[in-house]
Design a protein around this nucleic acid. Sequence first.
DNA 1: TCGTTCCGTTCGTCATCGCTTACCGTAAGT
DNA 2: ACTTACGGTAAGCGATGACGAACGGAACGA
Lengths: 105, 105
Amino acid sequence: MTNGTTALTALGERTRLAIFERLADGPLAVGEIAAGLPVSRPAVSQHLKVLKQAGLVRDEAAGTRRLYSVDPAGLAALEAYFERFWTNALTSFKDAAEQHPQEQT
Amino acid sequence: MTNGTTALTALGERTRLAIFERLADGPLAVGEIAAGLPVSRPAVSQHLKVLKQAGLVRDEAAGTRRLYSVDPAGLAALEAYFERFWTNALTSFKDAAEQHPQEQT
DNA sequence: TCGTTCCGTTCGTCATCGCTTACCGTAAGT
DNA sequence: ACTTACGGTAAGCGATGACGAACGGAACGA
């Protein structure tokens, strides 16, 4: 979907974030991911499904296994979303700072 | 806390993200935020508590009201977290691309 | 063809969390 | 001092979702 908010709700889960972080180091199969986490393999599979329909990961058949890897488009969408965010927020800060010139960190 | 994962779990909620987006345009009081959202004021207060202990917002007493604004440190922490993420992921992609030179989008 | 391995899916259970209602404390105005 | 406005907190409820167990299917190797 390459939507920023959807990606955030998908990553707003500890297990899913852990999976995504492991995938950031390179493609992995489902069993390999589950082996390094304190959850069962079906749980990992479900989380991968969520991450996939959020546009954050891609899957590829490799024999009996199935390799998952992070989707560059999803990362780009997130980056774009946050960039708009930062510019907005920082602009607001600048405007507020010009009206209250003393307080700042 | 300025922790990336905590901030993500905090922002991984539609209502909290909506609150944070509204705060990105400038400081607001609790009642003002609740007025623009389909939730009650206590709900907004609870969400603000979560956002605050995640290091994403700051609060300031203003008479009987209480002004909330986004915390620049929290945004910076998020930015740093994602930056590490992107570099990691892109490096992995590059390495994978050198081994499989044909497939790419 | 048979057995093994790996994965996706369904189902049921249990915890987590977001939301509302009601109540209380605090700061200004009169 | 009384009243009003604003916001935080407690309790309870309802719903979402994460998890494991069990089952079924597809891809290799013998």
